[in-house]
Amino acid sequence: MEKIFDRPHSLSDFVLSYCPGCTHGVINRLVAEVVDEMGLEGKTVGVCPVGCSVTAYNFFEFDMQEAAHGRAPAVATGIKRVHPENLVFTYQGDGDLAAIGTAETVHAAARAENISIIFVNNTIYGMTGGQMAPTSLVGQVTQTTPYGRKVENQGYPIHVAEMISTLRGACYVERVSVDSVPNIKKTKAAIRKAFECQMAGKGFSLVEVLSTCPTNWGMSPVEALERIRTEMMPEFPLGVYKDCTETGGVR
C-alpha cells in the first residue's frame, strides 16, 4: 500500500497552536499542500498577522515574517518588491484584515500588488477571547456585543470579497469555505489559483475562507461547521467575485 495522504513537506512538524477543531489548521495545511504541489517551498515567503495565526511562522517550513496587526499586506508589498520572483502571501484573520488592516488590504489590491492574501473569516476575534469582528453577523453575541450586534450601534458586517472585487487591481477574488470535505477541496483549488495568478504576474489575488471558532462561538467543532452553513453562508455567499486570470490579468 502506498501513502496517499500525509502531512505536506512545507507544513512543519510543530504542534499547531489552534484550539481543537478550529479550521485554521485545515487552511494552514491547504496552503502548505499547494506550495508543495507547485514546487515553491524554496521560493515562498509568508506573512502572518496578529491573531490566532500569529505564530504561523512556526507552522511552515518556508521563510516567514510576522507583521504588525493589520499591516501584513504592506509587509508583503515590501518583500515582493525586493523579491518579485518569489511567492509572497499573507495569511490574515477578519480582525487583522477587515478592521485595522482595511486600508492596507484595499490599497494592495488597488495597486494590483502581485501578492496573494488568504483571508480567514470566522466572524470573531479569536486570540483575544471572542470580541466582535467587522464580519460579525447582525445579532451575533460576542464579548463586546453581549446583547447581540445591533445595527444602530455597530452597523453591518463587511463583505471583503465583494468590496475588493470592485478594485481594478484585483485579478482574482473568491470566497470559499472549509465547512465540508468538498468545500475544503474547493478552497484548496482557490488557493492554488491565487498562487498561480501571482506567479504568472497577473496581479492581486484574495481568497476569503469562511472558517470556524468553536471556542468563542461556544459550540462543539462539528456544530461550528454547521453554523458556517446555516448562518454565515447566507450572509457571505460563496463564489468567484472576480477572475481576470483567463484574460491575461490586470497588470
Partner: peptide
Amino acid sequence: TFLQAESEVAAINMVYGAAGA
C-alpha cells in the same frame, strides 16, 4: 523601487518587509 504608500503606517511596514527581505 519608489512606492508612495497609502499612509505612513503602511510605508514603515513596507520598510519592515523589505528590510526583512
